[in-house]
Amino acid sequence: MSHEATKAPRAGSGEMFDAIAARYDILNRILSLGMDQGWRRRAVQALALRRSARALDLATGTADLAMTIARWYPDATVIGLDPSSGMLAEGAHKLAAAGLEDRVTLRIGDAQALPFEDASVDGVAIAFGIRNVPDRARALREMARVTRPGGRVVILELSEPRAGLMGLLARTYVHEIVPRIGAALSGAKEYRYLQRSIEAFPSPEVFTRMMGEAGLSVVEASPLTFGVAHLFVGTPLEERARREEA
């Protein structure tokens, strides 16, 4: 067997998430102490979709956010894109059980090269996925490109808590407890990656600047639950403004 066939999948890749797909949802509930559901609802509200909207959920995983969008906006259609076939298979089962297959479509895809025309969706969301994208700046440019003028790009991501006693407790939880619980419950060492990826993610100030450089006007950058997560909301700059920014 060749070295290529036996090497471990890249951390954060679709293949890595294939390995934990079956238990991903229950692990999220336990590891976030149930807070991830409330964070997703906040992100969905921030999309502020118009009637009969077309929304794009990147790094959709098992389709939690896509389903929340479909339920919150009953006349919207949602496309969920993810590089992991295993995660999408779990999501397809959930859509069938919820009767949402006619309004939520799941596709294999890469946030760095979106298979959509310019200004072709009314809103883009990505929850807990942007830190896994190798070229984040490219993905942000793609989100700005496919979103119609006046639409919103909403990014929900875990972050490194920084200040105060609660920040210290949250950092201890993320660095010491989350990887151990994740590994114990899933039998997979991939959850060590969670700690490293959160620690390596840019600060809110740096990430907000990245959004602006990618052609997004940032309208919100809010810490959630003592900074354990952050919500970023942007709108595409007009073409003239983009040229001036460049």
Rank of each mutant, 00 (worst) to 15 (best):
H3A: 13
A5H: 09
T6N: 09
T6W: 06
A8S: 14
A8L: 13
P9R: 00
A11V: 15
A11T: 14
G14E: 09
I20Q: 00
D25E: 12
D25T: 08
L27S: 05
L27I: 02
L31P: 00
L31A: 05
L31R: 05
S32Q: 07
D36C: 00
Q37S: 10
R40Y: 01
R40I: 01
R42T: 03
V44W: 02
A46P: 01
L47E: 12
S52I: 02
R54Y: 07
L56A: 04
D64L: 07
T68H: 03
T68S: 09
A70I: 09
R71F: 00
W72L: 08
W72N: 06
Y73P: 07
L81S: 13
D82P: 09
A89S: 12
A96Q: 15
A97N: 10
L100H: 02
E101F: 01
R103D: 06
T105A: 14
L106E: 12
R107E: 11
I108W: 03
I108N: 12
G109C: 07
D110M: 03
A111G: 11
E117R: 09
D118L: 01
S120F: 10
D122T: 10
G123M: 10
A127D: 06
A127Y: 05
F128R: 02
G129H: 08
I130F: 06
N132A: 09
V133M: 04
V133A: 03
V133C: 00
V133G: 03
R136V: 12
A137D: 15
A139Y: 02
L140T: 08
M143E: 07
M143N: 08
R148A: 15
P149M: 09
P149T: 07
V153L: 11
V154F: 06
I155A: 01
I155Q: 05
E157A: 04
E160C: 03
P161L: 14
G167I: 10
G167R: 10
A170W: 13
E176F: 14
R180D: 00
A183E: 15
A184E: 00
K189Y: 05
K189P: 01
F201H: 09
F201G: 06
P202H: 06
S203H: 05
S203T: 15
P204V: 11
V206D: 13
T208R: 15
R209L: 11
M210E: 15
G212V: 07
G215C: 08
V218N: 06
V219D: 07
E220K: 14
L224R: 08
A229W: 09
A229H: 08
H230Y: 15
H230D: 01
L231E: 01
L231K: 04
F232C: 08
T235V: 14
P236F: 12
E238Y: 09
R242Y: 04
